[in-house]
């Protein structure tokens, strides 16, 4: 909770048009939900259903995080839907991460071999309850994949736990590097 408060304090300058409920979020997730912290996921342009589902899982205790769990604990379903509507309609910023040249083709190969592209889409932009991975923060992606593999990261339907099961640590590194450098929007 202290970390969340500190994070909020350090990013005190908040744009006027941000809805009141979203102000605490952008403190860490960045302006309009475009994170600049490699460990903090971007929310801008994520599918609305993905955002509301993750908030729900934090509130219900399926996903646990020292910062997010207390943030979500007091949110109602309507609050979650409102936050999801706001962040899903924000434009994602261009990817700040540069994929290592040797990982571009290897990353694509892994994304196809492990069926990432089937659910997250050919350009890894996500849909419905499935998140956009393209241009997501590198360290965050790596942490999630490690968590799915270790079965410490809750999973709505078991698909990700199953998909991450056979990834090696090196695969995870390459995939996160590849995904983080992709263009995060259709235009």
């Amino acid at each position: 909770m202290f970390a969340a408060a500190l994070c909020f304090f350090l990013h005190g300058a908040i744009a006027e048009e941000v809805p009141r409920k979203a102000q605490a979020c952008v403190a860490c997730h960045g302006p309009a939900g475009n994170s600049t912290d490699p460990a903090m996921p971007s929310l801008a342009g994520q599918p609305a259903q993905f955002i509301s589902m993750q908030l729900f899982m934090f509130r219900e205790g399926n996903r646990k995080d020292p910062q997010m769990s207390p943030m979500a604990s007091s949110l109602s379903n309507a609050d979650m839907n409102e936050l999801a509507a706001y962040f899903s309609t924000q434009k994602p910023a261009a990817a700040s991460h540069g994929t290592a040249s040797e990982n571009a083709a290897a990353g694509r190969r892994l994304a196809e071999q492990h069926h990432c592209v089937q659910c997250h889409g050919p350009a890894l932009l996500g849909l419905q309850h499935i998140p956009r991975l393209a241009g997501q923060q590198f360290a965050y992606l790596r942490t999630q994949l490690r968590g799915f593999k270790a079965r410490t990261r809750a999973d709505f339907d078991g698909n990700m736990t199953s998909a991450a099961e056979l990834l090696s640590e090196k695969d995870i590194e390459i995939l996160a590097d590849y995904l983080s450098g992709l263009t995060p929007s259709r235009d």
């Binding site: 399926n62 078991g158 199953s162 099961e165």
Partner: peptide, 27 residues
């Protein structure tokens, strides 16, 4: 932090454990 995903919000997630143990042999 819990050592494993908390028991089913979601039945399928917890129920996949048997698949995992089978898959672990191939790991």
């Amino acid at each position: 932090m819990s050592p494993a995903p908390s028991r089913s919000l979601i039945s399928l997630a917890s129920a996949l454990v048997c698949v995992f143990s089978a898959a672990a042999a191939q790991a």
